[in-house]
């Protein structure tokens, strides 16, 4: 049994004659970790701002916990949105942020926050404007985790965080998610790093949904075939090609679809190399400029 926490249909947001979100439909189910992925300017942040009632749509429906988010305080109380560049009052230090946080989040866990503050080695009394970029990101990450909001959005939460700090974030997120399941939407460019944390992937390109599938289905759903050009082209003849590279007589072609055992044997017999395509590579292929259109046509056909 899954419960839907958010549902949007035909969601559209325009800025002048630029359409940032273009007739988008999707649902978010309870207690899952979603990856909201896409290139810069794809519309990810706008979608999250619409879902958290910070923007009004030009068209379409939004339901969060069964109601329109913008007008209902009881819905907004259950949301947490960690923005890429959160602004704080001029004279704030991190300790002021953590003092104020429980006023907004009913599930706030101070003990957990204290542990995270120690993990990230965050100086509590230093003025926010004097924090490094990574420390500023840590403030947001700590609020996002310790608030335990039933629906939490992390929008590129870790600008400036080093690799160690990012892994602390991933580990604490997984541990706490296991102990206190909730719905989390993670928007990020570091796809390979988070791929295994995600249960479901929503890929946005130019304001539209390109992919809305379980992460396990996406994994291994594309294959790269490399070898002599003639043999590669013969092998991929009737398949949906999503990427093509070549060098002299050699070709490397990425197809959408899994190969079964017989096909793998046949590829080996033709002297072809097969390589898996990571989620990040797949998304680069899918959102690469002119290819996106052909994929959409294939999906529609």
């Amino acid at each position: 049994m899954t419960t839907t926490v958010a549902r949007v249909s035909g969601l559209t947001k325009r800025y002048g004659d630029f359409t940032a979100v273009d007739g988008v439909d999707f649902t978010l189910e309870e207690n899952r970790i979603y990856g909201l992925l896409g290139r810069n300017g794809a519309g990810k942040t706008t979608i999250m701002q619409l879902l958290t009632g910070q923007l009004f749509p030009n068209g379409g429906e939004i339901e969060v916990f069964g109601r329109t988010p913008a007008e209902h305080a009881d819905v907004l109380r259950r949301l947490c949105f960690i923005a890429e560049s959160q602004r704080y009052p001029e004279d704030f230090a991190p300790r002021h942020v953590f003092t104020a946080a429980p006023w907004f989040f009913e599930n706030w866990d101070q003990e957990f926050a204290d542990r995270l503050i120690a993990d990230f080695r965050l100086p509590l009394k230093r003025p926010i404007k004097k924090l490094s970029r990574g420390q500023l990101s840590a403030v947001g990450v700590i609020v996002g985790l310790a608030s335990r909001a039933p629906l939490t959005f992390f929008d590129e939460p870790y600008l400036g965080l080093d690799a160690v700090a990012r892994h602390i974030f991933y580990d604490r997120l997984l541990e706490d998610f296991a102990a206190h399941p909730r719905t989390i939407v993670l928007s990020t460019h570091l796809i390979d790093e988070v791929a295994n944390l995600l249960e479901h992937i929503i890929l946005i390109d130019q304001g539209r949904i390109l992919l809305d599938r379980d992460a396990e289905e996406v994994r291994g759903s594309a294959t790269t075939i490399a070898g002599a050009r003639a043999a590669v082209e013969q092998f991929v003849a009737d398949r949906p090609v999503i990427g093509r590279e070549g060098l002299g007589g050699l070709a490397s072609v990425t197809i959408d679809g899994r190969l079964d055992h017989a096909e793998r044997v046949r590829a080996a017999e033709l002297g072809l190399e097969l390589a898996p395509v990571s989620l990040q590579q797949l998304i680069v292929h899918l959102t690469g400029a002119d290819l996106a259109a052909s994929i959409e046509q294939e999906a529609a056909a």
Binding site: D171, A179, N196, L197
Partner: peptide
């Protein structure tokens, strides 16, 4: 447990459960 698997392998608990 499922959660121990998930934490150790750094994967989503739903994946570990599956």
């Amino acid at each position: 447990s499922i959660n121990e698997f998930a934490a150790f392998l750094r994967v989503n608990p739903a994946t570990a459960l599956k």
